[in-house]
Design a protein around this nucleic acid. Structure first.
Lengths: 185, 185
DNA sequence: CTGCCTCCACACCGGTCTGTGTAACTTTAG
DNA sequence: CTAAAGTTACACAGACCGGTGTGGAGGCAG
């Protein structure tokens, strides 16, 4: 197999790992199972990833992709992000944020994972900040953090309670904070 | 050993399990290690807890204790809860909420754990609601949820970023929401 | 001292884990 | 066709898992 053919196989392995890791937890899923579900032998899987840890990190890295941009007012984009959250909540198999879950599960002593998750959350916060700057806010830092806290809180609450309505609560709170900062949707 | 002497030993086991489970993750800690660190044999540990799962549930159950009441205005009590959060964040070894972490780690198919965590969060939300009712709010439900989301978000963000300042951000957001509902500290 | 009861150290069970070694099979290239 | 390369199934190593069984050490009552 040529190198050019490796990428799709890597993708297939990562799709399988994603599904299993996210649904059952990272430590609960063995390499044998991932290989079997991906339709390759364990021996071949270790040709693509040198260790389970490398596979875990690749699985988490995939989530650090930028959010889509919708052509609307900044405040509407922000509230739209909470609507998107609610749609995610209502999808079957939602089980919280994979990155937060990984940090929670792997615990102390797994610094690479924490670092990937921190980078991801910083990106999300920067997205809020960029929207607020677009809207003309001169000091968007504090508000961007607060919006991030609302979405993180909604994700954690949804994971525990299973009630997708929490997204609506987060959206309403975000609207109050935005209005209090002088922004209207 | 008489039955009356059992309680302290159970407490010691739970203290040990708490430290290890919370710091390293539940699946990462074996029963052997808990017994050794608690200073008893594994055989004796199984006299106090019939299985590891029972130990896990007892470990989580301990967190469902009521919050302390401080004699201050309701709004001040609520903001004080966020100050308390910040003090928790600054303690060594803070690793997020044990109940959320357990749900994140054990994943689907571990309903008892999810149920304990949901009960805990509902208690927290009820605490906020009670303070808001004290303050004269006629419909405290939505705001109580939003305050809970802020604290949950702060906990998750602290776990990932390690920056205790997020508690301040949550507190500030809570103050804005309270003021917007007509309450002042 | 004797009998009893509790607890411990230790070994063990079957199972699972990550990771590797190997030999047979299939595919591809020349 | 032949040779090389890639992939497979399979077994294995070494470690750990949850849980149990056992023999013996220690305290205590009579």
């Amino acid at each position: 197999m040529r190198v050019a053919d490796k990428a799709p196989m890597v993708e297939r392995i990562l799709n399988t790992a994603d599904r299993l890791f996210y649904q059952r937890g990272i430590r609960a899923v063995g390499v044998d199972l991932i290989a079997a579900e991906a339709g390759i032998s364990k021996r071949s899987l270790y040709d693509y990833f040198p260790s389970k840890e490398a596979l875990i990190e690749a699985y988490l890295e995939r989530y650090t992709l930028p959010l889509p941009q919708i052509g609307a007012s900044p405040a509407a984009q922000i509230l739209g992000a909470f609507d998107r959250l609610e749609r995610m909540f209502r999808q079957d198999g939602f089980r919280g944020c994979p990155l937060v879950n990984a940090v929670a599960e792997l615990g102390a002593g797994c610094e690479p994972v924490r670092s990937i998750a921190a980078r991801f959350k910083e990106e999300r916060r920067a997205w809020f900040r960029a929207r607020l700057t677009e809207a003309g806010l001169v000091d968007p830092d504090a508000l961007a953090l607060q919006l991030l806290l609302l979405s993180e809180g909604a994700i954690a609450s949804m994971l525990v309670s299973g009630d997708a309505e929490v997204a609506r609560g987060a959206r309403d709170a975000a609207a109050v904070l935005l209005r209090s900062a002088g922004l209207d949707a």
